[in-house]
Design a protein around this nucleic acid. Structure first.
Lengths: 108, 108
DNA sequence: TTCGATGATCGACGATCATCGAACATTGAC
DNA sequence: GTCAATGTTCGATGATCGTCGATCATCGAA
């Protein structure tokens, strides 16, 4: 009854409103860190269905929501499909060097 | 009654055995991040009692244990007193740039 | 040896989290 | 309009977490 999101896709916070602890919490979970690493590959944008992990679809949606709320990823809807990508530049502007450093640590 | 730790202080893991997610989890909590920032100040080592935060003593002990298990801090016992410090160099060797970057992000 | 101080550990509690299946909403195709 | 596909949301579940007070173990001092 109340007006829903007029916009289609899920909401994306401004990076200025994201706290460091929120971003670290989002990264501090194996599945989510793995997703972020996937998205960091040169491929860039990734179709939802291409993120195949041994988890239920609703769980993946849950993790992506947390990553969205942390400002790390963004969704782009195209018809019924959905594409996910890192907000690399915005994260870099807010937390300089952080994402790159974490990813490089992950790769060893 | 079973043989406890023969050594005096608590255990400190080798940084090689610490996973990135463990370290991120340790940092992804406001109180602990604050402690790490305190310890990063040029003062260096810090007496336990000088870490005064609005939390119970057992809670502080709990957080310090998590930071220890993540390889971030170390304890040095001197009589009944206990001093805490960052394992800056070892963390740097294991996760290059990570601690420094997180701390610089925290300061803005 | 006894005592006080200092941290670590224990047990309990409420809250949050990761996970799942089911139901729902939206969109394109028929 | 009906249907299938896609991703989100809901409800429930165990597990983990942050917090506390109480207890314990260790050490120096009296």
């Amino acid at each position: 009854m109340a007006a829903r999101n007029a916009s289609k896709g899920p909401e994306h916070p401004r990076l200025e409103d994201v706290e460091l602890v929120t971003l670290l919490s989002a990264l501090a979970e194996p599945t989510r860190l793995r997703i972020v690493c996937m998205l960091a590959e040169p491929v860039g944008e990734r179709a939802w269905k291409d993120i195949d992990l041994p988890i239920a679809q609703s769980t993946l949606s849950h993790h992506l929501k947390i990553l969205r709320n942390a400002g790390l990823v963004q969704n782009r809807t195209e018809g019924t499909r959905c594409f996910v990508s890192l907000r690399t530049q915005e994260v870099e502007a807010r937390f300089p060097g952080l994402l790159e450093t974490v990813l490089s640590c992950r790769d060893h």
